[in-house]
Design a protein around this nucleic acid. Structure first.
Lengths: 205, 205
DNA sequence: CTATTGTTTGAATCTCGGCTCAAAGAAACC
DNA sequence: GGTTTCTTTGAGCCGAGATTCAAACAATAG
């Protein structure tokens, strides 16, 4: 009764599809997402897409999950690559990594696009919640380290201040990806930095 | 050569359609918006919707415009209804009017839904830009009055602080309408209030 | 090799919603 | 009454995209 046949190698193909779907969403948005786009981006036929993801929602959720993870990883990296003995520089690097760049930023654009589903889909809401909490955690650490070494003197609890910084980023970021003409990325970055200076009492930021 | 015939009364019908479309969008979102939904909500046939708005985009833009105006009017009202001799109370009222309420807030939900189009449609981007600028203006006034009467001692220019408050609202509001489980409206309100206290140096907030 | 099962394809079908349009209805004017 | 113009309707047409599916193809075991 030995089983035979071609072995499954679904994980590789799935990852390729997730990546392709991410590119397709970034390009045409969630509304215009067509199975054909995903298939083209992945270099396979429409049938294959359905073979692995009979429900497109599952694929989109996977894209969201991947975007959240890679975004968090990139922020963590930005934080850790700054000199550990300079908490101000680390916080600055963190702040810098949290705003969409001048040109249309694919990562941030994708995340905002996917967050739009959160209001109607528990799965996406969960991912957004998790992203927020983990960003807050990174900031909290950064602030606490600065306070412990005497570089920062915090105006409130590190946790509360971290919430504020993340929310500020989200608010400004929303306007930037939405092409608010009155709010250039440089200006937003400067405003956030000024806020951070105020709440940390650290002029060197 | 006297003209004859039924007079046009398009404005009334157009407003009814805009209102109906707003309700339909709030209910099913922009993605699922169907002409039939608008027609049903307005109590007319599909043909009538097309008669007044051959391009649905025009109707959606009108909905956005209306939402922005009525939202700004409601905030201005909240500000002015608070006692003029108490700048702190006025600022508090303003802050209170800027966050989605506990229950799914139809106004904020609609605005966030419409702002999503801004990244791809110049018309919507313009409305979002205008909304932001006018909110900043209201806050700037509120802060300057408080500073002039000695109730506030501002940590930075009123204009910059106003930007921060609006961005904070947008950031927290985004998470609230997206059902971020870790950020209840009460908590967000308290965090914003704390931030306002810090930058105005006004403990009475 | 054959058998067996996993994978891929793309043309055919199905479905939904936008759009057309001819006809009917309504209001003003003669 | 009749005429003219604006308005409304809804059935039917149409296309875009999802979904199905039978057949072809590939890898591995025996």
């Amino acid at each position: 009764m030995g089983k035979a046949g071609r072995p499954r190698n679904q994980t590789a193909r799935r990852q390729a599809l997730v990546s392709a779907a991410g590119r397709a969403i970034a390009e045409r948005g969630l509304e215009g997402l067509r199975i054909k786009d995903i298939a083209d981006a992945a270099g396979v036929s429409q049938g294959s897409v359905l073979y692995y993801y009979p429900e497109l929602d599952g694929l989109v959720l996977e894209v969201h999950r991947g975007a959240v993870e890679s975004y968090l990883a990139s922020r963590q990296r930005a934080y850790e690559e700054a000199p550990a003995e300079d908490p101000a520089a680390r916080l600055r690097a963190l702040l810098h990594s949290g705003l969409p760049s001048m040109t249309d930023d694919p990562v941030h654009g994708l995340l905002y696009e996917l967050h739009r589903r959160a209001g109607r889909s528990p799965g996406h809401a969960e991912l957004m919640t998790s992203l927020f909490a983990r960003e807050v955690a990174i900031y909290t650490t950064a602030l606490e380290v600065g306070a412990a070494t005497g570089v920062f003197s915090l105006a409130a609890s590190a946790h509360d201040l971290a919430h504020g910084l993340v929310a500020l980023e989200d608010g400004y970021g929303l306007h930037i990806v939405s092409h608010n003409a009155a709010l250039r990325p440089d200006r937003a970055r400067e405003l956030i930095l000024a806020h951070a200076r105020a709440v940390t009492g650290c002029a060197g930021l």
